[in-house]
Design a protein around this nucleic acid. Structure first.
Lengths: 318, 318
DNA sequence: GCTCGTTACGATACTCGTAACAATA
DNA sequence: TATTGTTACGAGTATCGTAACGAGC
């Protein structure tokens, strides 16, 4: 009855289907089947009843599920607690990052982290801030990079950077980063917006409300790349933070102007319930350092650093 | 970080000496050394400082000890809980039995259990009732067979058999099981007694006190076999329950007579804190059944059954 | 016939033990 | 020099994956 075997067992208990559980556990189906049988033999009792379609838990199996869930969470807690006092980063660190930061911040941070700590494996998932928040809240990630407009119960957030929201238009419209536009400018164009629920959409709606209007987009799209492509080809205007269109602006594929009196904040977030591993701490440090570099050398236009001074080195649980 | 590895770690943490820990863990010293190193690598931190003589825990190592002790006890508890609802006995059952029962009850029970459940490994330790009690109280055994004169905090005791205490004398003295003797008969002979603290010794002392005497044995011996050998060769008389001298009486190597108004009880005991495995339950059933056979067919002379009827089948946690 | 679990078997990977080595008092 | 931990390497064992099989809707 070792930890791996219990993890296998929980996969089966969760899916009630050995084939699916095997995929989740990244082992072959017969291997998993065998481990379940060995566990049953060791404990001297059937844990599952084999049915034509999948399996069902026996009463004893259900009791083992209840006990094992707690046990495995303890194992994970102990592991991360001990790893949090590690001297050198080891193991795996999982970063969930907002799509918008991909080209500007995420890629630079991940590349440098991999270079600096090649022994640490890194899992990156990119998605909307809402999904990123869910990911970190459900312990699907160790660090999150997301908008400060998301809610942060159970999360510890660390302000990172505040930048402008830009109105993005085709290149020929000739918007200019140095010439901010008013909230009113958002009206009168076809706006391509993200669908609810979404922090960016809420922000745009607020801007419009302040201008006395209401958003009624004819086109809703939930990926940045599609939104900007459509803008580039003249389907409409869109609204994104600078970081989301940095590369397009460098390549002069669209034009953009800051929306006056509207700021957009990014935060780094970690789960409040879990001790950070050394790898996690190092990653957070590196995020802060890269943000500092990008803002101070002018790459991250419109952005101001929100960090505590000296690049967040005393962010931590100590 | 699997269970086996953590058990290794605890052995080292307990002994602070990898060589000794390896012996306790029944692996070679380099194997243990290697597992500790692997654990340290996985956690990214030193758990021990290597000294010229042995090792010492680092601060992190000490914290892991604290966490792991609880974790491993949970693992054991879960395992025995699940195994307690097993259909067929599996695994290992540990019996701690009083020396006195060896020839009459223990040997028969163990032999039959092995025959009936060959897949279950059995560990038997025989000792004085006091050591047996300590053994079961410290979770060194699953079932104990011992005198009812021991204390039973944290233990659940199940009365088994009550028999007579016998005065044992050399064969030529001609004591007779059918002719009880009074407590007073114990005086005036060289008594060979067990040393304090010991249930049998306490019993003999009480008998003597009732007869207005006090025990001042010139010879104290702590094994039944030596006691009876010495009696056989005329060094003195001794006092034992019938079960302790059954075989000697059958072989007519000593003579014995019940001491009037004195009874000696045997109980089966299990830890109150730990769920019984199916193997444990079956063993207890079998003990009860054998006790019933031995008393009812007259083999266990002077004995009366203390069991609830039908051989203890409803002894259990249900 | 399709889905899903089990059995069979060769390949792989991990752990172990022996022996040689290193470090320290 | 005795004690104790580490390194090296060959052997043994357990797990895994692929392929074939079986059972139930």
């Amino acid at each position: 009855m070792d930890v791996r075997q219990l993890e296998y067992f929980m996969h089966v208990a969760n899916t009630l289907n050995i084939t699916h559980a095997a995929m989740r556990a990244h082992v072959s189906q017969p291997a998993l089947s065998r481990q379940i049988r060995l566990l049953e033999q060791e404990l001297g009792t059937k844990l599952f009843k084999r049915k034509a379609r999948g399996v069902v838990l026996t009463e004893t199996g259900q009791r083992l599920v209840d006990r094992t869930r707690v046990l495995l969470s303890n194992v994970g807690r102990i592991k991360s607690e001990i790893m949090s006092s590690a001297d050198e980063p080891v193991g795996t660190v999982r970063l969930a990052a907002s799509n918008s930061l991909s080209g500007l911040l995420t890629s630079r941070v991940v590349a440098r982290f991999r270079r600096t700590y090649p022994q640490v494996s890194v899992h990156v998932t990119e998605n909307t801030s809402m999904i990123v928040r869910e990911s970190i809240a459900n312990d699907g990630a160790d660090v999150a990079l997301l908008s400060d407009r998301e809610s942060f119960t159970t999360l510890t957030k660390m302000p990172l950077v505040t930048e402008s929201l830009l109105l993005i238009a085709p290149l020929e419209v000739g918007l200019d980063l140095s010439r901010p536009v008013s909230a009113k400018s958002l009206t009168g164009h076809n706006l391509i917006l993200t669908p609810f629920p979404n922090g960016l959409r809420r922000a745009v709606d607020e801007i419009l409300v302040r201008a006395g209007r209401v958003a009624e987009p004819k086109l809703e799209v939930d990926t940045n790349s599609l939104m900007t492509s459509l803008t580039k080809y003249g389907t409409g205007y869109c609204v994104l933070p600078y970081s989301g269109v940095h590369e397009l602006l460098v390549r002069k594929e669209v034009s953009a102007a800051p929306i006056r009196n509207v700021r957009w904040g990014w935060v780094t977030a970690v789960s409040r319930e879990r001790a950070m591993s050394t790898a996690t701490k190092k990653l957070i440090e590196m995020i802060a350092e890269e943000a500092k570099v990008l803002t101070s050398n002018g790459t991250w236009k419109t952005a101001t650093l929100d960090l505590a001074q000296d690049s967040g080195k005393h962010i931590g649980l100590d």
